[in-house]
Design a protein around this nucleic acid. Structure first.
Lengths: 240, 240
DNA sequence: GCATATTTGTCCGTATGTATA
DNA sequence: CTATACATACGGACAAATATG
């Protein structure tokens, strides 16, 4: 009845050593560290959406108590990476098409709002520029996972222009959800690569001080991305 | 060494009876019900910002186990109503002026964005209209707590126009934080009452289909409100 | 600075209600 | 209907950190 999660996590993680440092460098709680490990596994696609994470298997693999594990589950549930089904356990979130559309609605609201709220140029675009460069490097190195990360950092940089910690946190959660969506794309290169040039275009427009045009480009960017993902979803449904 | 929290909560709550129904109508978890009680106490100003909620005192007063109580603390911490200091316990959040400004930055981003994103009239303004009416009734009845609630519902209705569950949830959290801020206002009537007429004005403008003017009014509304609260904060600091 | 007491962090074992097979 | 598996909640225990004298 095991779903294999226990073995997989046992291979890939060394929380035993992490837990060992607890007494030494216990800056964060063990629950948070457990959540960090699980969050990474989920982001990597190690635990595909729909996977059930039973308390027993994960507890045994990571060597932490139920209470601690439940704390970690609670953290990830609030990040929307896990869903809690009543008396059935926790599962890796399966993002629906409705979720996808809502994610892009929020992204349009916040990202475009951040650009629109810009005052007089020049704008603090260092983080955005560094993300664009990181994306271009990753593409050359054919490191598609890194490309995906850079792409997300680009949009985090856009939101950061609003200078609002709460908006940053919201977007961190929404973009973490989006990582789950990316796993349905079988070819990450074909999905992410086209946006490299658009990222740079938006960056240059903003560097020139044209926030209005930047917002327009961003909005059409997001709509294209949304449609592409929605199409991939539709295909996946028709296959299964 | 008690801060009085135990006695105060013991007077006002009857979680024992709530916990009694657990087996019968346990639709929600005990931790959530505990969180509900504490959330109300905080919103009422029963636990002023900065109050430390020791595990022992609250546990004794509510008659729940430590694990359950910690779960409730965790829920409220994620709502930003409590802050968790490692090895020191949980405290009722003290909202700083920076927080206040950030809250209004997010509000402007999301609320104005929701209005801007409206398509062709007519708009689904039922919730907004009902909140305006509720506010006017509360003002006539001199129920200032209700007036505050109605005011918050007005803005939730505005955000709901975006039709995004995630935006709704974000705003629910932000407005809950704002309730903490309201406690610094010594006279709720003088603070809330002037916005009654502005709420209705915005409603009517939106009913007429003029989303552009509605957004403009909303932005100036938010800025005025922010300045008023920031002033009250400055006074409070100079007093202490 | 030191020793003590209190409080929190973590983990365990168990009992009960519930959903699924 | 029974049996299994699980979530929920409780209480106890010890270690670690903090506060106090």
């Amino acid at each position: 009845m095991t779903n294999g999660a226990d073995r997989r996590i046992a291979e890939a993680s060394s929380l035993a050593e992490l837990a060992g440092d607890r007494a030494l460098l216990g800056r964060t709680s063990t629950a948070e560290r457990v959540a960090d490990v699980l969050r990474d596994r989920i982001a990597e696609g190690f635990f595909p959406p729909g996977t059930r994470l039973s308390e027993d298997s994960v507890k045994g693999a990571l060597g932490v108590s139920r209470n601690t594990l439940r704390e970690a589950f609670r953290l990830l549930t609030h990040e929307r990476l896990l869903v809690h089904k009543l008396n059935r356990g926790v599962f890796v979130r399966v993002v629906t098409v409705d979720d996808l559309n809502d994610i892009y609605r929020v992204r349009a609201l916040v990202e475009c709002g951040a650009v629109r709220g810009l005052g007089k140029p020049p704008y603090p675009l260092e983080a955005v520029e560094s993300a664009v460069l990181a994306g271009e490097c990753a593409a050359q190195a054919r490191a598609w996972q890194d490309l995906s990360t850079a792409n997300i950092r680009f949009h985090q940089g856009i939101v950061a222009l609003a200078g609002s910690p709460r908006a940053d946190e919201l977007m961190r959660g929404v973009l973490a959800e989006l990582r789950l969506v990316f796993h349905v794309m079988d070819d990450p290169r074909r999905f992410h690569a086209p946006y490299l040039v658009r990222n740079r275009h938006i960056l240059e427009v903003l560097q020139s001080g044209d926030a209005f045009e930047g917002e327009r480009l961003l909005a059409s960017y997001l709509e294209d991305s949304r449609l592409q993902l929605a199409d991939a979803y539709a295909q996946r449904v028709s296959e299964s």
